[in-house]
Design a protein around this nucleic acid. Structure first.
Length: 889
RNA sequence: GGGCGGUUAGCUCAGCGGUAGAGCAUCGUGUUGACAUCGCGAGGGUCACAGGUUCAAUCCCUGUACCGCCCA
């Protein structure tokens, strides 16, 4: 017996364990065609947030659906080592527990601590994915720092290096002073900052003139090596080619003409500091300028690159000062020297580290780079050719725009936690890139002719470097495994648009380079989760919703179904507790419907053949179920999770519960062949509902399936996905039942409008009804009585009983004798309104048909349709007119 | 500055050449037999604005306004 209400908290863990116990999540290379989704590996430090809940639900829906279709479904689980994030977590822990820094305990000990942390706390996210019902093939779980995946990383690095696609270069990088590491362009985000524009006068050599430069960064002026003006700027033309004397250091720097300088901005003259600004770096390259660094890796002033005159005491005093302090000191000194023209308030975009949140310092360093432009070419071609398709399509433009202008990818990080770069340096700095230290030593021996001590590069790789290999490294590459042959390329990648550049693009590049085939055929891009008001969720705003709270309160199925219902193409998802609460009602509805079935002896009848169903009600329901399955299937094929959810919802609640079960009620509990067929049909269709809803609501459906005896415990997850099947003459039963539904609806409408108490039963009289209609009325008399609160249903030939309400349904006029119950004036007013509506519609169609051009040019079937609509409206109006005249007296 | 998306019922959104829809909210009404986490019913929209194409535009095109996002 099903309990009175569904208790998710009780049922969910047991079902999940049950699925795992029967091996339901495991991919199974029997004969079936594979269907593969690679999980976007969550950070090992992560905990489940709404973004995960969204993306993982969608993936699980696809996986469960395909699995039920009989595909060999592999949903590959795993986590990402998340270099910076994890290192920070463990560093904080170290500080808290033993008040030590990682530098104090040293690299080796620190890494040991990270691994310890991972072993004890790293599994939280995977436990939470289980609560979400995610049917991942846990036996295959991988971690980006696993031995196998690390092998893949080394293999890729070494290979790309040999191909010249990975190389070292000294150029400007985005330096994160907080993490003391280089980061890639993608990890930098522009933030608007209110600052100042300082106008500083630089004396022109040999004159008493000045050139005034406007700058947002006075502290870097020690490293200026030019002043740039626009070549067309008349104001400065005569100064081009002359020299300015850089204040404070006294260095002689040229005034150069470069179109980088914008005459509209500031004074039109800009100071050029090639070692501390990306644009200035480009100017410096164009003009062959020196590039002294004046800030070190911690953002402090360094004077090592400067050739200072003995008098520059002020500048010397800056050595070692933080960039913020140095700015203050320099501005004060310029002020003192009378070289500060003015200070203008100025709002501008300042690059910040996306994780550290501190301003990025462009710094001239040597780093490892990957030639992304070269790798991007085949990836662009593959998307152009349709080998990989984005859904929705528009994201291809975003992908193309990024890939066609892709910059060298800085892949080295000055961190400890990550894949150590497989490069070793000889005493003379010669680099050996090899898979192992032994191979590096062998290479060194060959190079030097003797053994030499080697030093390994201390840096690690960008976390995204290993993520880029995920679609094949998880399958055993570089080994040539059967899994690799079977599950690569994957079918669908599901992710948010914020990850296209970081991950999708890089998987495309690496997949094509190393496997010669795209890593996935479809990239489904969903929106981002926001709060009910459309605000981005953030801790500082305090509007973060914890999916685990929602699961605790409403159950996993309600949350998952809500996610599906809200996921249309190209839209962000605005999710609040109210929506989840609403969908919990649907879970409850399904529960109660099943309970009702159970009470009425509805048990699965495996021998039931829908094609042989005879009763019109059964055929009507089976036909509607067919259409629902077709809709749901098409929606999932098209990644329309919202349409899928809506089709299942509508059918379950309205077709099955509101109409079918209501029609069936009196017969269900009885004996006899009609009742038996009804019960078998109900059981069959409930089974269809459970199967169609299972991907979205796995727990309640599986529980009902098991409890009601549809299959062995935990068998719904692998039950076959329903297929539409033949139903005898569906058109006829649809017409018949639709009429009954229309009639009951019309009567209910009028009764409600006329405020007839439900306890009042009235006869239903049909005037001008065809024999077909009276036949239907007779056949469905019992249902009509019950559902339209009628005492009888019969034709009316004679005069109208006094005090009747009249409703036009098709060709017939439905008469409700309500003498003494209704207000005839109100009924007359209602009929006038009805008539006006019909006439207005008729008028609209008439005008259209009166347009000769419409009749001549519109498609004939459209014209025909309008002609019959006109006739229908006119007939309705005439029948309402007749109804009015019948009560006129 | 460049690009993308949005603007439809009070709210969240679907529809995308010829009848404007759903859920929630609102209002009315109803209850001992699946379900008040419910049933039944009702009201509510010149589909942002201006032009254009078309026999016909919420839908296609152009422009404007506002909102959001991405890139510089």
């Amino acid at each position: 017996m099903l309990s009175k209400s569904f208790n998710p908290a009780e049922v969910e863990p047991a079902l999940y364990a049950g699925w795992e116990a029967v091996g339901a999540f495991g991919a199974d290379a029997a004969a079936a065609r594979p269907f593969t989704i690679m999980i976007p590996p969550p950070n090992v430090t992560g905990s489940l947030h709404m973004g995960h809940a969204l993306t993982m639900t969608l993936q699980d829906v696809l996986i469960r659906w395909r699995r039920m279709q009989g595909r060999d479904a592999l949903w590959q689980p795993g986590t990402d080592h998340a270099g910076i994030a994890t290192q920070m977590v463990v560093e904080r822990l170290l500080a808290r527990t033993s008040n030590q820094t990682r530098q104090e305990i040293g690299r080796e000990a620190f890494l040991e601590r990270v691994w310890q942390w991972k072993a004890s706390s790293g599994g939280a996210i995977t436990e939470q994915l289980r609560r979400l019902g995610a049917s991942l093939d846990w036996a295959r779980e991988r971690f980006t720092m696993d031995e196998g995946l690390s092998d893949a990383v080394r293999e890729v690095f070494v290979t790309l290096h040999r191909e010249g696609l990975i190389y070292r270069d000294r150029r400007l990088v985005n330096w994160d002073p907080k993490f003391q590491s280089a980061i890639s362009d993608l990890e930098v985000e522009a933030r608007e900052v209110r600052g100042s524009l300082w106008h500083v006068r630089y004396p022109i050599e040999g004159t008493d003139e000045f050139i005034t430069v406007a700058t947002t960064r006075p502290e870097t002026m020690l490293g200026d090596t030019a002043v740039a003006v626009h070549p067309d700027d008349e104001r400065y033309r005569r100064l081009v080619g002359r020299h300015a004397i850089l204040p404070l250091t006294g260095r002689r720097i040229p005034v150069v003409a470069d179109s980088y300088s914008d005459p509209e901005k500031g004074t039109g003259a800009v100071k050029i500091t090639p070692a501390h600004d990306f644009n200035d770096f480009a100017v410096g390259q164009r003009h062959g300028l020196p590039m002294p660094s004046v800030l070190d890796r911690e953002g402090r002033v360094t004077l090592a690159d400067l050739d200072l005159p003995p008098t520059a005491d002020f500048v010397r005093s800056l050595a070692g000062q933080d960039r913020v302090e140095a700015r203050k000191a320099i501005v004060a000194e310029l002020e003192r020297l009378g070289l500060l023209d003015r200070i203008e308030p100025h709002t501008h975009q300042v690059p910040h580290g996306d994780r550290s949140g501190v301003p990025i310092e462009p710094l001239l360093t040597t780093q490892w780079y990957c030639n992304a432009a070269e790798l991007a070419r085949p990836a662009i071609a593959a998307v152009e050719a349709g080998d990989t398709a984005f859904v929705p399509r528009q994201w291809e433009n975003t992908f193309f725009a990024w890939m066609r202008d892709i910059q060298p990818w800085c892949i080295s990080r000055q961190l400890w936690w990550g894949h150590r770069i497989p490069a070793w340096y000889g005493p003379d700095g010669h680099v050996f890139v090899e898979r192992t230290e032994a191979e590096a030593q062998a290479a060194a021996r060959a190079h030097y002719g003797r053994d030499e001590p080697l030093e390994r590069d201390p840096d690690v790789l960008d976390t995204w470097f290993s993520s880029a290999l995920w679609p094949f490294s998880t399958l055993g590459w570089p080994q040539d495994t059967p899994e690799l042959a079977r599950y690569y390329p994957g079918d669908v990648l599901v992710t948010g648009h914020d990850i296209i550049f970081f991950w999708v693009a890089r998987m495309m590049m690496m997949g094509l380079h190393f496997r010669k085939r795209v890593p996935f055929r479809t990239v489904y891009i969903h929106g981002l989760v926001r709060d009910e008001r459309g605000q981005k969720m953030s801790k500082s705003k305090g509007n973060v919703i914890d999916p685990l709270d929602l699961i605790d309160t409403y159950g996993t199925d309600a949350l998952r179904f809500t996610v599906c219902a809200l996921t249309g193409p190209g839209r962000d998802i605005k999710l609040g507790a109210a929506g989840v609460e609403g969908n919990r009602r649907f879970v409850t509805k399904l529960w109660n419907a099943a309970r009702f079935c159970e009470m009425n002896g509805i048990v699965p009848a495996p021998d039931f053949d829908p094609a042989a169903a005879r009763s019109p009600l059964c055929r009507w329901l089976l036909d509607a179920a067919n259409r629902m399955v077709t809709e749901a299937d098409a929606a999932l094929e098209a990644f329309r999770f919202d349409d899928y959810a809506a089709a299942a919802y509508r059918f379950t609640w309205h077709s099955f519960c509101d109409w079918f079960l209501e029609f069936a009620k009196p017969v269900l509990g009885t004996a006899g062949p009609d009742a038996a067929e009804l019960r078998a049909t109900a059981a069959h269709v409930l089974g269809v509902i459970l199967r169609v809803l299972h991907p979205a609501m796995p727990f309640v459906t599986e529980h009902l399936w098991d409890e009601m005896g549809y299959g062995a415990p935990c068998s719904l997850i692998r039950a076959p996905w329903p297929q539409p099947g033949p139903v005898a003459d569906p058109g006829a039963v649809r017409e018949e039942l639709d009429w009954v539904v229309r009639l009951i609806g019309a009567v209910r409408g009028v009764r409600s409008e006329m405020q007839i108490a439900p306890a009042v039963l009235t006869p239903i009289l049909l005037r001008d009804a065809t024999p077909e209609t009276t036949g239907r009325a007779a056949r469905w008399a019992e249902s009509i009585h019950r559902m339209a609160r009628a005492s009888s249903v019969e034709p009316l030939d004679g005069p109208l009983p006094p005090g009747s309400a009249q409703i036009v349904v098709d060709e017939a006029t439905v008469v409700l004798p309500l003498a003494g119950v209704i207000d005839l004036g109100a009924e007359r007013a209602r009929l006038f309104k009805e008539r006006a509506k019909a006439l207005a519609e008729a008028e609209k169609v008439l005008r259209k048909l009166g347009n000769a051009e419409f009749v001549a040019k519109a498609r004939p079937e459209v014209v025909e349709e309008n002609r019959s609509r006109l006739a229908a409206f006119q007939d309705d109006a005439a029948r309402i007119e007749a109804a009015i005249s019948r009560i006129a007296s």
